[in-house]
Design a protein around this nucleic acid. Structure first.
Lengths: 327, 327
DNA sequence: CGTTTTTATGCACGCGCGTGCATAATCCAT
DNA sequence: ATGGATTATGCACGCGCGTGCATAAAAACG
């Protein structure tokens, strides 16, 4: 592998000083003549400024670290994709750090910080609060996506409101035995959704049934719903923590020969692409992802411009998407 | 934002030279006494070596760029996740560059190269050959994942063999009117799968029906299968380019009140997690992803050790997974 | 105890680039 | 034509770190 061409090479070829090359690719003032010569020389040599060396001079690196956990959730996939696109659009680069089972997140993240990233975004609810706390102690701006830890800037879907809206909708459609299908690991958003639902039910004087899923996926939703349907007094509506649970519950309803939504209504959360498939036509709550990401990118742009990082969470209101499984 | 602590700060505090600190965190020889003092000083100051500056001294950056397109395909999600985990396990960092609709991939990729990545991995079949060609012209090692462009190192599932195995299996199970559901954009792997299937059918003296999908997803498979089922002589087996098509086709079969697999067998490709869901129980061909990734990481490790990049594609044989939709 | 060998440490340079400062070149107005 | 204002260019330094080289310290050996 031949060594890369540096600004010095271009300078030599163009017969100017290296500073001129530097200014030409920066925002310095260069005469039209020399600019032309430098550009042709750079073109011929295939020169590209070394971003590593450039960022060494105290400036920003243009890197944004995405600390992403809960990668078994399709919704996180969508978030990740959209974040990647948004970061590329903002002319920055995404350094993605997955939560590995073997290696502790902390260690991976710390390694990422060695790259002087401009900001860290914590994606997904399952990153432990301890890790987030450690991150906050650093001087690198940290933002959270999809959680609402106090004192840490970020964006999130208003889970409480989502729970409330979903609950009110189910009540309006005449349901009286409403169950919440949740997961064992109680993340922040989980608790808020449950609280919102509980508020809606409480206002209507209805009880809140509940069923835990041992697993964070389709199978978990299937099993939890199966247990619910096997109860003596079967619920007539299932509000699921996320769409994957809801799809599993839908499958369980089919196994029980229950008509959806006549016998039982099923409501999800996230509006993953699959929810819109005609095979499922899942009613669900759609977090306005694009709005969330736009705000997050604005926060990142702020800190890149030297502003102190925000310390508040922007809540985005979810939207009720009514399809076939609850109406 | 206070400025980061450098090796000089640690050196001052420990009462040693900066070189000693550098050696302590590198592999240089340091006496037990000074090492201890340096380590405590570093601990107290929260010092971490600056990876940016470190990589400036001609060494590797520890960055691997993932150029990923076709992000609407769940299978690519899985590949991306596994790649991210593998890269983290290898103690490297992943720089993910999505194919943005607005910005040309070339430009994004070039920006990524400014970070002196150790290697580039092209993921997904839809990255244009032109872009890959441009990448090959660089002195940064480029690998391809899931495609088989000649002269460029990488790993891929043996699509031809997959087509052959699938075709032979359908023939053995007594199918005679076998259709291939494919997509309009003819990627490399698509053509190979079709060729493998054609070889199997040709050997058995059977015709190859075909139907194009206008779209690379569930809906596309649904529509294509619908057209096939509406034909006078309905096919008794559908071999789909990927699982998403197959799931759409499955839905179409249900709409036509066709029994699966009695009336029509449906075979997918990729073995995405959803294929295993009891709701679908899709028979499919499983590319051995873990094996592919292990080999790719080995190739990357090679070039990081200074070896010239491989120029051959390691083919991994796919495995026939027989569930309910074809048996 | 003196000499040679080994080990530990500091100094200084360079990686590729941005940028303040001084100087040279150019321009404009009088 | 000439002084001053503006612009263009080069020089040199520093960003944070690794490392060859020289030197100082310690160890080993006779």
């Amino acid at each position: 592998m031949k060594s890369r061409v540096t600004a010095q090479h271009v300078a030599d070829r163009a017969g100017v000083s290296r500073s001129a090359v530097s200014r030409c690719f920066g925002d310095g003032q260069v005469s039209d003549d020399t600019r032309k010569r430098i550009e042709t020389a750079a073109e011929e040599l295939g020169y590209r400024p070394n971003a590593i060396a450039r960022s060494l001079t105290g400036r920003s690196t243009g890197l944004v670290a995405l600390l992403v956990a809960e990668m078994d959730n399709p919704h996180v996939d969508i978030v990740l994709k959209k974040l990647l696109l948004a970061i590329a659009e903002a002319d920055k680069r995404a350094l993605v750090i997955p939560e590995t089972p073997r290696q502790d997140v902390t260690e991976s993240t710390m390694h990422a910080l060695d790259y002087q990233v401009d900001a860290i975004v914590v994606v997904g609810g399952t990153v432990s609060d301890r890790v987030v706390g450690q991150l906050r102690a650093l001087d690198t701006p940290v933002f959270q996506f999809g959680r609402q830890l106090a004192g840490l800037g970020g964006v999130a879907c208003d889970s409480h409101l989502g729970g409330l809206l979903g609950g009110q909708f189910l009540i309006r459609s005449g349901r009286t035995r409403i169950a919440y299908v949740t997961k064992t690991s109680s993340t922040d958003s989980n608790q808020r959704r449950r609280a919102g639902l509980a508020a809606a039910l409480g206002a209507a004087g209805l009880p809140l049934l509940e069923e835990l899923s041992e697993d964070n996926s389709f199978e978990g939703g299937y099993n939890a719903a199966t247990r619910l349907f096997a109860r003596l007094e079967r619920p007539d509506a299932l509000f699921c923590f996320n769409d994957m649970f809801a799809l599993g519950a839908l499958q369980a309803a089919s196994a029980f020969r229950l008509r959806v939504p006549e016998d039982v209504a099923i409501l999800g959360f996230d509006d993953i692409p699959m929810a819109a498939w005609p095979a499922f036509a899942l009613s669900t709550l759609r977090p306005n992802l694009d709005a969330q990401i736009a705000r997050l990118m604005a926060m990142i742009a702020e800190v890149c411009d030297g502003a102190p990082p925000r310390r508040t969470v922007d809540l985005v209101v979810p939207e009720l998407v009514i399809r076939r499984t609850a109406c």
